[in-house]
Amino acid sequence: MTAVAGGVRALARIVARQDGRGGTSLPVLDGEGPLALRRTRSSGAEARVVVVGAMSGPLGGDHFTVEADVEAGARLHVGSAAATIALPGQAKGEARYDVRLSVADGGELHWLPEQLISARGSDLHVTTRVDVGASGRLVLREEQVLGRVGEEPGRLSSRIRVGVAGRVVLDQELACGPGAPGGWDGPAGLGGCRAVGQLVVVRPEFADAPVAARVLGDHAAVLPLAGPAALVSAVAADALRLRGLLDEALEALDSLG
């Protein structure tokens, strides 16, 4: 971690590899400062890692990067100990949070961090890029909460791009808060909801048997993408209801096999 004029730069890296005994080892597990990493009890073939926020942030001017590579046949589950809160900070300028994930053939990644909360006055740009091999598997959850309870949100933009076998199957950006292009909170965008989330599921079997589109009430839908992947998109009044919708959708996807 380095503190530079204008903010903190922090990098966390994880490499997950088959250990040859039916489990997954972590030859690289490097985190620092706000991105400290802890390995927790494994379950079966899967290695589990928790991102432990050792300080608050990202603040204005900070730049965090998290990279995880799941090698062939390895299985990794990453969560976080608490929600991430974007705060204004003393340095001027936006904060950046970049997530770079790759899943090789036969690998599986569950990327399930807690919510990202955009506090008043913050300005955060998140990019998430995932590359999944043709027989790789992914479950990725993103949840954005606009403001703490009763608080106006900051500026938040979040772009996610997911490629499977070299083809981009999802590329979308959400921009909200003060300074975002107009209408973000209106009847086409969030409709006044304060929590918005996505769940991306990539499974090779979706190539032959894509999931059927379905709606979960008026504020969530399971969307089969153009490729072996599905997106669950949901908006809700608050973080708790959003999590309920995403959990319900994931259960529905799991019950398909």
């Binding site: 590329d171 086409a188 965008g189 409709g191 589109a213 008026d218």
Partner: peptide, 21 residues
């Protein structure tokens, strides 16, 4: 094509599926 914008509106996408049903 990665240079193309990817701006999205959640309720447009969700609403389209509600409508299609």
């Amino acid at each position: 094509v990665d240079e193309l914008p990817a701006a999205s509106a959640p309720l447009l996408e969700i609403g389209a599926e509600v409508h299609a049903a």
